[in-house]
């Protein structure tokens, strides 16, 4: 029979042998800080057949960052899948009203950008961005949390959170000016109403309706329009332990003649100790920027 002390030694030896394996299982960018507040790192270790671990079942939780690094989800030139660069392949299927709306938007970015002081982007006055624009504006470190009833997305920009219900509730019915839930009218929301369902063990499909109208929100920083008639479909696919693909398609018949894919963002898992710096919008600072820089740049 093994003595108690020997058993303890064996357990400790087993634990120390296991520890490097557990550590090696993580493919986070390495972060460090003598004070314990590590800044993000964007040096992703390469994934090989040996280091790529299987995706956990029905689990998106963790801190995720764009595979392209800190600029990988910025999307200043427009949504990832269709940047607004004037190329024919990126032309959008506007309806007549959609094109008219696009032309009324004076964006500070994209093929039709105006000078900073002349733009009318609601973001530059710190208006709420709305869904889906939160997915197209400076997506950086994004934390996802799950419990049995919901998935919570914590956006870096402006410390905003959003709920996706996974408890089986139905997507509300889109009606004029809002949605209908249990036969009652409910208000439009900046983040809309989102429900998600697992289509397989690694794929969550999320639908959102009930968002803000076109006089309040834009689709992206180049002034593409979006309306309250949109149905947004997002797919979160956990490819492996360290990889997530976040894609999005919009169906907005008021401004686009057919649904189209806006984003297919590849993300990698980050160290959960990473300290996310604040990224806020201040109307006062925006005004000061325009006063000291933007207006000058526009000759005003």
């Amino acid at each position: 029979m093994i003595s108690r002390s020997l058993r303890r030694v064996l357990v400790l030896l087993a634990a120390s042998a296991l520890f490097p394996i557990v550590t090696a299982a993580q493919n986070y960018p390495k972060v460090s800080s003598p004070d314990g507040w590590p800044s993000p790192s964007w040096e992703y270790p390469p994934l090989t057949p040996q280091t790529r671990k299987p995706a956990p079942r029905r689990d998106l939780s963790g801190m995720w960052g764009p595979l392209g690094g800190h600029m990988g989800g910025v999307q200043a030139g427009g949504v990832l899948s269709k940047p607004n660069n004037g190329r024919p392949e990126n032309a959008l299927p506007y309806t007549t009203y959609g094109l008219e709306l696009y032309k009324s938007h004076k964006a500070a970015e994209g093929a039709d950008a105006v000078l900073p002081a002349e733009n009318n982007d609601p973001r530059n006055k710190c208006e709420p961005l709305g869904i889906p624009r939160y997915n197209h504006y400076n997506v950086r470190l994004t934390q996802i949390f799950q419990d049995p009833t919901k998935v919570v997305i914590l956006y870096h920009y402006d410390n905003r959170w959003r709920i996706i219900w996974t408890d089986g509730r139905k997507l509300p019915k889109l009606i004029d000016g809002g949605v209908e839930i249990d036969g009652q009218f409910r208000e439009q929301r900046i983040f809309g109403y989102s429900v998600g369902r697992w289509t397989d063990d690694n794929t969550l499909v999320v639908e959102t309706v009930g968002t803000y109208p076109e006089d309040r929100v834009w689709l992206d920083s180049t002034g593409r329009p979006i309306t309250d008639q949109v149905r947004v479909t997002e797919t979160f696919k956990r490819i492996s332990l360290d990889e997530l693909e976040w894609s999005e398609t919009i169906d907005d018949p008021k401004v686009y003649t057919k649904p189209w894919e806006t984003m297919r963002l590849q993300m990698r898992l980050h160290d959960p100790h990473t300290d996310v710096m604040e990224y806020y919008c201040s109307p006062y600072e925006a005004e000061q920027y325009n006063h000291f820089f933007g207006n000058d740049a526009s000759g005003k």
Binding site: L154, R160, I190, F191
Partner: peptide
């Protein structure tokens, strides 16, 4: 709809 974080991982 703002979130904030309190670290409980032992950092000072």
């Amino acid at each position: 709809r703002k979130w904030r974080n309190i670290w409980t991982d032992g950092r000072a």
